[in-house]
Amino acid sequence: MGIEIIKIIMLMAAVTYGARVLPFLLFRNKKIDGFLKSFIQLIPVALLATLVIPELILSSNNDLTLYNPFLLTGILTFIFAKILPNLFLSVLFGMIVFWGFAKII
């Protein structure tokens, strides 16, 4: 293995693991209240929205598009999961529908 690549991997690991472990080290067993508590409880939904919404309506060139396989499949997957709340089946459904739309559109 190249020394340079190993150095790169170690630096990447340090930076990434640092971001993962720092809050655990700083806030372990500390009571979090008030604004900060609401803030951290809202992070999961905020992250969900930022991961999903742009993918559904922006193309890879960041153009706004509504007629695309991602948005159409997204809507159908949402409806499917509403009716049948099963994580695995819904993901499978999304994959198959997307495959179909990607062929047509």
């Binding site: 905020a46 930022t50 999903v52 993918e55 997204g74 994580l87």
Partner: peptide
Amino acid sequence: FALLALFIVLTISAVNRDNLLTYLIAG
């Protein structure tokens, strides 16, 4: 689409009346 589908399914149980506003603003 697999990971996106996972996120969409998880959205259904994660979003409620109290955090819907945050979800929409974030999007």
